[in-house]
Nucleic acid binder design. Structure first.
Lengths: 199, 199
DNA sequence: GGTAACTACAACGTTGCCGTTGGATTAGAG
DNA sequence: CTCTAATCCAACGGCAACGTTGTAGTTACC
């Protein structure tokens, strides 16, 4: 069988993603990551260094995937509901990302890949501000906070799964429930961000 | 000096609250809790059992404090903006609670004190539904989701502190920044939940 | 004064994880 | 075939955490 170092690397990182998302940086063990990947633990250290570096590497990858999958709408955010809906879809399909972000936030250290991410968010804020100037979005709210909140609309469900269960009593994995949540996210984003319409 | 078993208990729990909020259930050590409280570790086990029980006890207490401090408005939620604002104030003044809730959510086990909390939330949802029937709130949105989102409005800042820093570049502890955030929360809640007004 | 409860202190056994190492296998490249 | 590089395997040292225990001192209460 041929050497497949890229495959080895990929399998390790996939396993690390699952484990980190599930158990967090503290609760995850390097041994279990290696076992899940079916690869010797020693490979982890050769490829990724220590646990912290591995976590950052995992998070960076997942953020890149999100950015690639959920492109901002070309029409200047006037369809902000759908944009929020698509962000929600991504998080629903990839719940690991939200969890990784929450672990990172709770850990409290400096964010991984901070420079790139900051630039990415600043671009988003500028797009929101531009849409406000065009009248596509309400100028009643600060664009940075608005962008922050739209992200929250999509991710908050994963941040407090206990609350959703206690509040609604419904299974988050039920397809109907997911559809309802998505519709809510879309409408909430519209109510928040669109200029008031005539009643 | 007189025995002060209640004081000992309280000091231990306060120390545990700080440590758990900061480092999470995994990152917290019983030894450090005892050191912070200035009380021998062995007392922890006599009073609270193992680490998991202590965490649940801490969380239960903090939730009770929130419920006692932020009472639902008597006027049937037509002033939902202020209600959201007061919830925000509480979380801003007691950031431990949000962090404890996030740790709990990420851990994934069954929520501490589930029965009481479920009942508490169900009451909230009924209040929202009643306000919708009265026309004080829009009936465009599911009351459970709406309640969930209003909580999120107040807590999301603490869930993703990296994002707020990268998006706005501002210090969350700056008083002016806090005032702005509060105003945003109030307006966002109103835009979300109040019936459309004539433009 | 004697007894029971509370507390302090220190050390313990056990367990588990991190990150490393040395050597044995396996596969490709010249 | 030989040399190099990737992988596996097993074990290691070091450390820190959990939860317990035994002993000694302190306070309340009868």
């Amino acid at each position: 069988m041929a050497w497949d170092t890229e495959g080895t690397r990929r399998r390790l990182k996939e396993a690390a993603t699952v484990e980190f998302a599930q158990y967090g940086p503290d609760g995850t063990t390097m041994t279990r990551i290696a076992e899940r990947a079916g690869i010797n633990k020693e490979r982890l250290y050769k490829y990724f260094g220590d646990k912290e570096s591995l976590f950052e590497s995992v998070l960076r990858d997942e953020l890149e995937k999100l950015a690639a999958a959920v492109t901002p709408p070309a029409d200047g955010l006037k369809d902000i509901g759908e944009f929020a809906g698509r962000t929600f879809d991504y998080h629903a399909a990839h719940p690991e990302l939200a969890r990784l972000l929450l672990w990172e936030g709770l850990a409290g250290g400096p964010p991984a890949d901070e420079a790139n991410r900051t630039e990415h968010y600043r671009r988003k804020v500028r797009a929101f501000a531009a849409a406000q100037r065009d009248g596509a979005l309400t100028d009643d709210l600060d664009p940075a906070y608005l962008a922050f909140l739209v992200i929250g609309l999509a991710a908050w469900w994963h941040a407090a799964p206990q609350l959703t269960r206690m509040l609604s009593g419904l299974d988050p994995d039920d397809p109907d429930e997911r559809t309802r949540r998505r519709a809510f996210v879309v409408r909430a984003a519209e109510r928040l961000a669109l200029p008031y319409r005539e009643a």
